[in-house]
Design a binder for these strands. Structure first.
Lengths: 223, 223
DNA sequence: GATAGTTTCATACAACTGTTTGAATTGCAA
DNA sequence: TTGCAATTCAAACAGTTGTATGAAACTATC
């Protein structure tokens, strides 16, 4: 074990390079040069390039999932086993959005890395994402408890659309900024979270609980 | 020019292999073997590997965009320059969804290729997608005309969320099927289109035109 | 049927990739 | 200090990749 200095230097360098240049453009030689370590150190400490990438992604992924579940658990405890659907959806998309968006010039390396991982889909990361289903099932359960008279199919579609809006907004944040000529402020993360949650909520509740549904989904900034 | 047989054999083989195995796994040697042509033929006919990929994607992309604009134009002409927002959104996401989803065992090579292009994001394809903004602006224009009292910001967000739901559903169709244990039927494309359009519509109109908004967004299959 | 232009072909190239090797070095315990 | 394991290092390995070359085969025109 010793100091682990080499190991963490590789992790830091790799995360930074991948964040900046993407997975396709960065070789092990780039990484070890940035980290000032020997080429063989990567295979010594991580086994392979893919395992290095996997470790980077898993670390961040676990952190996000923990935040999600913490928010969910807190909400359900406060509501005596049942949380409002808005709060559940906020727990689902909030941590991801907060982890990736925010003022561009002060985005952490981790944030930029996760955006890359969301845009480029390399095998080791895809493998990990496929294991995420069990995690999502916990949200399905909470959503069922929150909306007991909604069918499973509706729940699944609502969850799918909520994740869709969050991930797509992250992936295509640059394009949305360009398309809207800066009118869509992606630096205001809490506003983005509120928009996604609002639309997902209304999608799941429209026609059933009109009284509880937010009156205006996207109309926050209506003139 | 001659028969162009070699050229089209390469295109067909490449599309099939990329659709089946993804961009990362397929080499030029795989393609020319599948097409029964010489290795040098790719560079002779297309210049480079990236230009081959670009040509494949551009072809399908142009076809989809043409369908989209045709639906949009027809709708606006029928409505005297103004189309209902649902119809505009349907023109936006319908062709893409129809082009990619549908019964798994009878999906065309083109469909499976476009799904790949949506999942794996390789440089030549990314470059083309970035040019798509002008195309989207035409939909922004139509949406403005349809919803004259909605602010631009709302329009942009609505467009973003509509595309998000469509593309994410395509990208993650397998995962949604697995998560829902088959309860979400992604083979019923028109149902998927209706769901996406419904949610996007309600997101854009909620709180303004309650009378026109569909009463139940996701409630089609409520028990 | 010779000629010019296009297309095909086998082959080589040059560069880059992740990984392995085995020796050198380091750090720590006895 | 000695000995042993963990770590670092330079170097090479083995394979693959997209691309280039120059001759051969083909095609159509005159």
């Amino acid at each position: 074990m010793a100091s682990d200095h080499t190991r963490s230097a590789i992790l830091a360098a790799a995360e930074r390079l991948y964040a900046d240049r993407g997975f396709g453009d960065v070789t092990l030689r780039d990484i070890v040069a940035e980290a000032n370590v020997n080429l063989a150190a990567v295979n010594y400490h991580f086994g392979s390039k893919d395992e290095l990438i996997a470790e980077l992604f898993v670390t961040r992924s676990i952190a996000t999932n923990r935040e999600r579940l913490h928010e969910l658990k807190t909400a359900e405890e406060q509501g005596g086993g049942r949380a409002p659907i808005e709060v559940i959806l906020r727990a689902l998309v909030g941590p991801t959005l907060r982890g990736c968006l925010g003022p561009q010039n002060q985005r952490s390396t981790a944030a930029r890395f996760m955006i890359r991982a969301s845009i480029e889909s390399v095998p080791p990361i895809r493998r990990i994402k496929n294991r995420e289903i069990d995690h999502l099932r916990k949200f399905v359960g909470a959503m069922r408890r929150s909306l007991p008279d909604r069918s499973d199919v509706e729940i699944y579609w609502g969850l799918n659309f909520a994740l869709a809006m969050a991930h797509h907004t992250i992936r295509e944040s640059e394009r949305l900024t360009k398309l809207s000529e800066g009118k869509c402020d992606l630096d205001d993360v809490e506003d983005v979270v509120a928009r996604v949650v609002s639309v997902a909520t209304i999608a799941l509740t429209a026609g059933r609980m009109e009284a509880k549904a937010p009156a205006r989904a996207l109309a926050r900034d209506a003139r």
